[in-house]
């Protein structure tokens, strides 16, 4: 069990890692799967399809640097998905996947992005809610 405190920059909020999961919602409330789907498929929001492919027939351009998101909700629990989004470096320090809810350990972040996480806590919860629906 590991307790991680937020940096002075106010965000991101503190959360608890248990094993390879973050069991509790970052916001205390469940996310919205429809909003999560929009984040995942929007190039400028989630950026997920730069690297991943998935069951998104309307998206002609999908990446192949990472495993398909198809079936992610069957392979991983909510808590496991949450930690992989928040900061996958805790499981694989060399991971290619950006930490979507961390401002730590980054070099020369662009001025417009400094002190900001890629996604907000609400957005992380929306994406988690969507990923659990990907059962096959």
């Amino acid at each position: 069990l590991l307790l991680w405190a937020a940096p002075v920059l106010a965000q991101p909020a503190a959360f608890q890692v248990v094993g390879d999961t973050i069991p509790a919602s970052l916001t205390g409330t469940p996310g919205d799967a429809a909003r999560g789907r929009a984040i995942v498929t929007t190039r400028q929001r989630g950026l997920c399809l730069l690297c991943h492919s998935g069951p998104f027939p309307e998206e002609p351009f999908q990446g192949d640097l990472a495993p398909s998101l198809a079936g992610a909700g069957a392979r991983l629990t909510k808590g496991q998905l949450r930690l992989r989004l928040v900061d996958g470096r805790r499981l694989n320090p060399a991971t290619l996947m950006p930490a979507y809810y961390s401002t730590e350990g980054l070099v020369r972040v662009g001025r417009a992005w400094q002190g900001r996480t890629v996604l907000s806590a609400e957005e992380i919860e929306d994406v988690v809610a969507f990923l659990v629906t990907l059962q096959e």
Binding site: L50, C51, D64, L65, L96, A99, V107, V109
Partner: peptide, 25 residues
């Protein structure tokens, strides 16, 4: 080889490790 930016990626991760793959389109 240094990872940088909010997305924390290095030139090498794309151009050495993943050359030939597709970054979206």
């Amino acid at each position: 080889r240094e990872r940088r930016g909010q997305l924390n990626l290095s030139c090498a991760q794309c151009h050495d490790d993943n050359a030939g793959r597709r970054l979206a389109g």
